[in-house]
C-alpha cells in the first residue's frame, strides 16, 4: 500500500479564538477508509477544510500524491483530486437541477458539454439515482440531497473522498444504501462521523481528535 496523503503538524485558529488545530498529523494510504472522531467543536470539519486549502494552515505541511501543497494554485490542483462532501447538502447543491449540479464540477475541470453529460449519466447510474436527473435540487428530500451531494463530488473522479458527517438525518434505508455505496467505491476516504454503527461497517481504522491533535 502506498501513501496517498500526509499532513504534518497542521495548525489553525479562527480569527480571535483559541487554536482549533495545533499539530494535527494524519497519514492516509491507498484503499484506506479512516474514521475521524472527536467531541463537538474540536475541529474535525476545520481539519477537512484546511486539508483542501479552504483555510490555510498556519504552519506544518500537506503532502499528497508525492507533492507538497502550499499556495492557492497548488490547492486548486489538489481539490481536483481530493473531493470534500460538506456536512449540509444545501451548501453543496446550488444549481437549479440535479443534472446541472453534477455537471458543474466536470465542466470546471474542462470537460466538454457532451463529456459532462456522459459523466452525469455514469455517476447517477453508479449511485442508482438516475430517476432524479431532471429534478430541481431544493425540492429533493433530505436523504436524496445527501446522495446527490455525494454524486456531485464523485463526478469529479477524485482519488480521495473527505466526508463530513455523511449519515446526518438519513433514514435507515438511505443509510444502508450509503454504506453500500461507500463500500463499493475504490477511493480512499476520511470520514468524520459520530455514528458508531456506521463507522463499524465502513471504516478500516479510526483516529481520534483531541486538543487540536489527531491520535
Amino acid at each position: 500500500m502506498s501513501l496517498l496523503l500526509e499532513t504534518d503538524k497542521l495548525s489553525y485558529a479562527y480569527h480571535g479564538s483559541a487554536p482549533c488545530l495545533s499539530g494535527a498529523s494524519l497519514a492516509l494510504e491507498e484503499g484506506e477508509r479512516v474514521g475521524l472522531v472527536g467531541d463537538n467543536g474540536v475541529g474535525k470539519s476545520t481539519f477537512l477544510q484546511v486539508l483542501v486549502g479552504l483555510y490555510k494552515s498556519h504552519d506544518g505541511r500537506i503532502t499528497a500524491f508525492g507533492q507538497d501543497f502550499v499556495t492557492e494554485e497548488d490547492f486548486i490542483q489538489l481539490r481536483r483530486r481530493v473531493g470534500l462532501v460538506f456536512q449540509d447538502p444545501d451548501d453543496q447543491l446550488f444549481c437549479p437541477t440535479v443534472k446541472e449540479d453534477i455537471a458543474f464540477g466536470p465542466l470546471n475541470l474542462g470537460y466538454s458539454r457532451a463529456e459532462a453529460d456522459a459523466i452525469v449519466e455514469e455517476t447517477l447510474a453508479l449511485l442508482n439515482l438516475s430517476h432524479l436527473k431532471e429534478r430541481v435540487t431544493h425540492r429533493l428530500s433530505g436523504g436524496q440531497k445527501r446522495l446527490v451531494a455525494l454524486a456531485t463530488v464523485i463526478a469529479m473522479k477524485p482519488d480521495i473522498l473527505l466526508l463530513d458527517e455523511p449519515t446526518n438525518d438519513l433514514d435507515e434505508k438511505t443509510r444502508i444504501r450509503l454504506i453500500e455505496i461507500l463500500l463499493s467505491l475504490p477511493q480512499a476516504m476520511i470520514i468524520v462521523s459520530h455514528d458508531r454503527a456506521f463507522r463499524e461497517k465502513v471504516v478500516t481504522r479510526t483516529v481520534k481528535m483531541e486538543n487540536g491533535q489527531i491520535f
Binding site: Q49, V52, L54, I76, R79, R80, G83, L84, F86, D88, D91, Q92, F94, P96, T97, K99, E100, A103, F104, G105, L107, N108, L109, R113, D117, T152, V153, M156
Partner: peptide, 19 residues
C-alpha cells in the same frame, strides 16, 4: 460555505446552464 463547496468543485467564476 456555498462558495467553499463551489471552490472544492473547481469553481473559477464561470457558471454553466445546461437547459
Amino acid at each position: 460555505r456555498i462558495l467553499m463547496a463551489m471552490k472544492c468543485r473547481g469553481f473559477n467564476g464561470q457558471f454553466h446552464l445546461l437547459k
